[in-house]
Design a protein around this nucleic acid. Structure first.
Lengths: 276, 276
DNA sequence: CGGGTTGTTCCATTATTCGGAACTTAATTT
DNA sequence: AAATTAAGTTCCGAATAATGGAACAACCCG
């Protein structure tokens, strides 16, 4: 597979108590759990905060954080609070700049934006999250990094549900089994049953809606993008405010979104060569 | 210090042979060296490429890469080549979105852009690199991530040289001693002596120029931003094409750039509280 | 088919991490 | 101001994970 392809069905190791489980990668796994804690927090965390979240012995945690700081993955402020480090930016900038999937999709996203005048997103399924890889807005200069790179749940985003509709049955079942739902709005799916029902519908139609399920007042229509072997799955979407995007309009736009998705898949096939 | 503050004088561990040294952080350090190799490469690397670059035994390297892949920091394509992983994006998006320095500087960058019509950059000194934290362009929608997050050398960028001019003498000496110069254009500094001479000048003037030293045809004027204890150092700059930005014009803009830098420092002081 | 290249697995040795406890420092209460 | 509690740091024997050499498998390519 291309560099942007990876197992779309890997499980996430977290539970509801805030205590995170180490992954099967020894030392690295434990450190990444900490990095996750620090980067996902709403504000810089103090040592004790992390201590209770990580459930590690004090001495151990102290050294682990020290190493992360030493490497620039985490930074410490005057008050001894831990915040994400800037070295992460450098890593990410490179990861993004050369991502093949993004490069292939880029022109088609621009076309779609031109055709509709609304914001276009490109996302990839990673675990049970959608990671947004690109965004093309109209008019106003984009607030960079605004959405790009962010991981959003798959069960309440258009791209997410579109992606799930192309997941092999077994992978989908595993993913749904481990999924925990958070109600963001009145229309957010909160059960695997209703979600699965909609995913089946989407699989037939070939496109998905987000009916203000993630953010009140925001709708979108999305189409899936997948590799033949289904190891790589993502999607494109058109997003905008509900007052401007009626469900009727979204239904009309399902066609151009699917066309764009098709062209991107075509581009992938060319890059991949005829053999696959 | 604030979360965005960290030792500005830490040394970088790399040498010219392409063999990178492990840092003093045990297992993590070794893995980060690998991640550096993969993210800094121009194209996905094959196992053997990394083998020669990293100078590790095959078995060891194999396991290390396996762990990085397992954690999503690196991804493997069909041909077994290694590329940066998308998990890095998620980390970085959060690191960026909540960075205090950037948040404080944001409005002043916009003002500066409005006043001059040219591109404004915000950067921070990390080791001997400048990491760009923000960018405000005129007109055209920004190509996101384009510059943001990128690490550039300190000795050939306006922000870099401005930052160096505020580094304590000892830290500066250490940094210069370890610096290795790459000639990007005809006017790039390639010796510590000439660089030091210019830095002394900049320290007096309070602003720095980039006279097409990093990229031919691109000039800039920059002013330093620093915390009182000099543990945090960065800068703002106005950048643009040489044909439009005469040296005369840049000299005029030195004033607004310094004013903007001053206002950002003021903002930092308020955030930090009166005690420091 | 044969020979080189590339990637993977195994396992005894070695180095690192682990984690309890003692210790220092800072903040809070009496 | 002294006493008390909380917060953060250091230490070191025991437990664990990383190391790296070598053997093994897969893949080209001529």
């Amino acid at each position: 597979m291309l560099p942007f392809l990876s197992r779309a069905d890997e499980a996430m190791d977290s539970n509801r108590d805030g205590i995170m489980q180490a992954r099967e990668t020894g030392t690295l796994g434990k450190l990444m759990v900490l990095l996750d804690l620090v980067t996902h927090a709403d504000a810089p965390l103090r040592f004790t905060d992390i201590l209770s979240l990580a459930g590690q012995p004090r001495g151990t945690l102290h050294r682990q954080l020290g190493h992360l700081v030493e490497e620039g993955l985490i930074e410490v402020d005057v008050d001894g609070r831990y915040a994400p480090g800037l070295r992460l930016l450098d890593f990410a900038a490179r990861s993004w700049a050369r991502n093949e999937f993004r490069l292939i999709a880029e022109p088609h996203l621009a076309d779609l934006q031109q055709a509709t005048g609304e914001t276009v997103h490109l996302g990839v399924l990673r675990g049970s999250s959608i990671i947004y890889l690109d965004k093309v807005e109209g008019r106003q200069p984009v607030r960079m990094y605004s959405q790009i790179g962010n991981a959003s749940p798959c069960y309440c985003t258009g791209v997410g549900k579109a992606a799930l509709s192309r997941l092999p049955a077994e992978s989908l079942a595993n993913l749904l089994a481990d999924l925990s739902f958070t109600r963001f709005t009145a229309s957010t799916h909160v059960s695997a049953e209703t979600l699965l029902a909609e995913i089946r519908e989407i699989a037939d139609l070939g496109y998905a809606f987000d009916r203000e399920e993630h953010e009140a007042g925001i709708r979108c229509v999305a189409a899936p993008i997948w590799s033949e072997d289904r190891t790589f799955i993502g999607g494109v979407s058109i997003t905008g405010p509900a007052y401007r995007l009626s469900m009727e309009l979204l239904r009309q736009w399902a066609v151009p979104v699917q066309l764009a998705a098709g062209r991107i898949m075509e581009g992938m096939r060319i890059r991949l060569g005829p053999r696959r």
